[in-house]
Design a protein around this nucleic acid. Structure first.
Lengths: 254, 254
DNA sequence: CTCCCTTGTTTGTCCGGACAATGTGACTGC
DNA sequence: GCAGTCACATTGTCCGGACAAACAAGGGAG
């Protein structure tokens, strides 16, 4: 009785455009990713060896390897010496982007809205100064916002930014997310340090979010750095635990 | 007035052992990482161009690039065309490992302990079956544990595993973490899907964790997959929010 | 003095090849 | 029938070179 093994090598239509300015390895990796996404490359199927693949596409092996490697890093493929490269079974989404709540909600089709509660410049408290790496008492921008979805409060966001980093208008803050504005201002976000916890709501917080007093809240603190290592944002957020949770995918560091 | 720019090229003592079985690029990346860790390479300092570095070490440029690239992926270095490669300022730790609570506590010097509350085989409920990708009602291993630090309850852990995956003894579960046991059994963990939220403790939960009734709890659900895409573990954990929070570093996907 | 262009430096991409390490499967000897 | 061994397939590592693209700084024109 022949077992219907899924580990078959899949013939695949691939092509690259050498006149395109987009790198060849990137073209290839995108096509492979799309093929996986659309189920053309089924989980468990082998990709065919690199040498043959390179020959078929008219590329060199290093280029093909670079394409495959990027997908391995994303967790979509697994390589095994002596076996080949195969598609991972599990439904990997993406390993937790540095995303704003606004983008998350929008991606979920929730039509987010923002109320700017305060938008001022204040002297930095000791804590804020330490997080942002500025002098205590120096002036920082302070933004307090309420994020809504379907007209219901979802989260209360309090952010501090160094002054002079970018121009910010209240109107912009109500139309889109903070990260999008920062990226648009030419700031390249690089990394962030996050702490996620929970605690009971104070009466003021409960009132603000429309929760009963003492309700559990999900809290997040985040310091964001740009690629030069400067802290560009420090935020403390509180989410309605009854309506929001963090969901993300992790990859194991090889 | 000359500004004391930190962006200096740093002379560095590096060497590789060609007789070692460990890859050359890995030797180099480890030495560079150590130099950054120990502050020999200060934040903002340039690394010197790749060609010269390769020549100095007797390596080829691709090998040097591979070493540097791995550190760029870790977020320790930043490359800029026409400028060079420089060390990132911020204190990047690690971008959130697939770690067990046990390892986290041990790393923090908390001397973790485990009480195994239950260790049985049960028929899978619809939810567990869906998460693990097994048939509803088929037998799965169920482990309930209480994790303590300094004798105080920290978290209640409830895990489900497919049967036949590995041998597990209660004694082992009390001595170390589940992930360590799985790795020791030859299972290569690959990725995990996590959901983090918060809710109020039920009376039973409060009792178990030594919290007052209705206290906020931090909750985490996790499905872990191995490199073939099988789900190898599904767990629902509740943490005392007053004593525990998740902390992690994110990198921006280029 | 200011602005623009040129020039040089450095990384990004790509090639073609070579050998080593590892896992698979078939073959052979017992 | 079984186990050990050998050959094969495939990825891992490494080399040396070539050209393109982006950025910074210096020099020249206005």
């Amino acid at each position: 009785m022949p077992k219907p093994e899924v580990d078959q090598t899949v013939p695949l239509q691939l092509s690259v455009d050498r006149n395109s300015p987009v790198p060849l390895y990137f073209q290839l990796s995108q096509q492979l990713e799309a093929a996986i996404e659309h189920g053309v490359l089924t989980p468990g199927s082998l990709l065919g060896n690199e040498i043959e693949l390179a020959g078929r596409l008219g590329l060199s092996r290093p280029t093909v390897r670079q394409a495959i490697q990027s997908l391995v890093d994303k967790g979509l493929l697994v390589r095994r010496r002596g076996v080949g490269t195969q598609v991972v079974h599990s439904q990997v989404k993406r390993p937790l982007e540095l995303s704003s709540l606004y983008d998350d909600l929008e991606a979920a089709g929730q039509r987010p809205a923002t109320q700017v509660l305060a938008h001022t410049h204040v002297p930095a408290t000791a804590e804020v100064a330490a997080r942002l790496g500025v002098g205590e008492g120096s002036e920082v921008r302070c933004v307090e916002r309420l994020r809504l979805a379907h007209g219901e409060p979802m989260a209360y966001l309090c952010n501090f930014l160094p002054t002079g980093l970018l121009e910010l208008e209240t109107g912009q803050l109500e139309a889109t997310g903070l990260y999008r504005l920062m990226r648009a201002a030419g700031i390249t976000l690089h990394s962030a340090r996050q702490t996620v916890g929970a605690r009971a709501a104070t009466p003021a917080e409960a009132e603000r979010l429309g929760e009963p007093a003492g309700a559990p809240l999900l809290t997040m603190q985040r310091i964001t750095y740009d690629d030069t290592g400067r802290a560009v944002e420090y935020g403390t957020h509180t989410y309605r635990a009854s309506r929001y949770s963090f969901e993300f995918q992790l990859l194991v560091r090889s």
